[in-house]
Every structure is written in C-alpha cells, then in structure tokens.
Amino acid sequence: MPRPAPQPGESQQVIDAEIAAHHRAAHAAAASGAPVPAHPPRDFAPYRSTRLRHPTHELVRADPEEIELVSPAFGHTDVAAEEADLTIQHAGEPLGERIILTGRVLDGDGRPVRNQLVEIWQANASGRYVHKRDQHPAPLDPNFTGVGRMITGDDGSYRLTTIKPGAYPWKNHRNAWRPAHIHFSFFGSAFTQRLITQMYFPGDPLFALDPIYQSISDQRARDRLVATYDHDVSEPEWALGYRWDVVLTGPKSTWMEPEDADHA
C-alpha cells in the first residue's frame, strides 16, 4: 500500500494549547457560577471544521410543542435482529478483536427509553471506513461493513456484537489521529432528546490529543462517552465485553406514556 507523503499542517502543540485555553475559560466560567452545558460548544476552533459551521447568533429559546415531545414510532418490525451483529454480514469472519457491547438508554429520570432505534457505524479493525471518501491507506475488510441497527428493549437495553475499531488519521492538523470510536445515533421518547455521539474505549492514549473528544470541557462529561470493560459481558472463548449506558435528558411528553397512565 503506497505511503502518502506527510502533509504540512499545524502541530499538535498548537492544537493542545488551544484546547487548554478553551478548558481554562470553561472552568473559569463554571467557577463564577455560569451553567455548564453537557454538550460541546459548537464554536470550538481546535476542531478546524467547526470554523465555518457554527452559528454565530445565540440560539432562540423555543417551547417544545406536542410534536417535539414525541418521537417517530420505530418498532421491532423496522430492524432485523441480525442487524445487531456486525460480524455476520458477510460470507467470512471479519478481522480484529470481537467485542460485545451492551448498555441501557435512559431518560433523565432513569426511565428506560423503550422501543427506540439505535444506529451505529464504525471503522474496521485497521481504522478504515467503507465510506468512499475515506482515503486512509489501511486495508478494507471484505467481511466487515461496520453498520448496525437495533431497537431498545422494554428495559431500554441494547446489545451488539462487532469488531473493535482501529484508530485512524485525519487531516485536522499534522499527525492528527482519532481515538478508536463507534458512532451512535439515538432517538429518545421526545424528538428534543435526539442524539448523535461517539463511544470510546477505556484508556485510549489519544484522548488528550483529540479535539473532538476534548471539545467537551468537563472531564466527567467526557468520561460518559467512554465504555467500561465488563467481565460479566465477556463470553469465554468468544468475545470481550463492554458496557456503555446513555442518558437522554430533556423535556418529554407525559401523555404518550401508557405505562405511566395506568398508574395515574
């Protein structure tokens, strides 16, 4: 595989200094009592692609209406059970470390988000996406696409089998590498709870260097994107297990919850 010539670009030190300045400002604001949002700011220059893609006006506060307090009616008929196993989508076994990943999707009151769609996509074990615009010179795996879908159970749980993705380079700055991650898309019980995010693996040495992960200024909030190794999820002679729970807070409907209406 031909090795591309190194591209010029800003150094990691430049990015590190910008990240540190953002974090200092966020901590100073928190110390003076400002609210600390759970989500990353959209204006976060160390991630260079945000420069022309973040709004400069304040968002306008809107009261969610009924339509925004409910979600599309996904159901088990939408998704085949096999779509939760990314290792059986081709004739052969994909290369890499087989893992089982499970967790629960809860709302801010701890109630399960039931019967909702979870979608994932990821690079293969070599750090290469099937996507045609991914030019990373790492091999594609003919036995791995890297796309899965699930519907959460009555307890809000999901469970999938896949291959641990590899880290990969990107062109944010010189020698920029994304920590290994799996992209996740969630729907809550209200559309306002919609979430697309990335799940990371514990102990990744690239965490400190990654402007996307570090766009979240609070260490505890960053930690919430990191799965934990769970030996009870691991299966002997088969796969390592990880657990990652997700919380979707926000305004939600009360009238669409028949389970609760029964107790009213």
Binding site: E119, I196, L225
Partner: peptide, 20 residues
C-alpha cells in the same frame, strides 16, 4: 445522580453516508 446526567453529543463526522 451522576448516572443520570446527559450523554454529550459528538459530531456525526464525514463518514455516515453508508450508514444513516
């Protein structure tokens, strides 16, 4: 409860075209 704090968002990235 720490366990019930919002999970932060991250970008959809460039490579969702074969998934979403």
């Amino acid at each position: 409860d720490e366990a019930l704090l919002q999970t932060p968002a991250q970008t959809v990235g460039p490579f969702f075209g074969y998934a979403l």
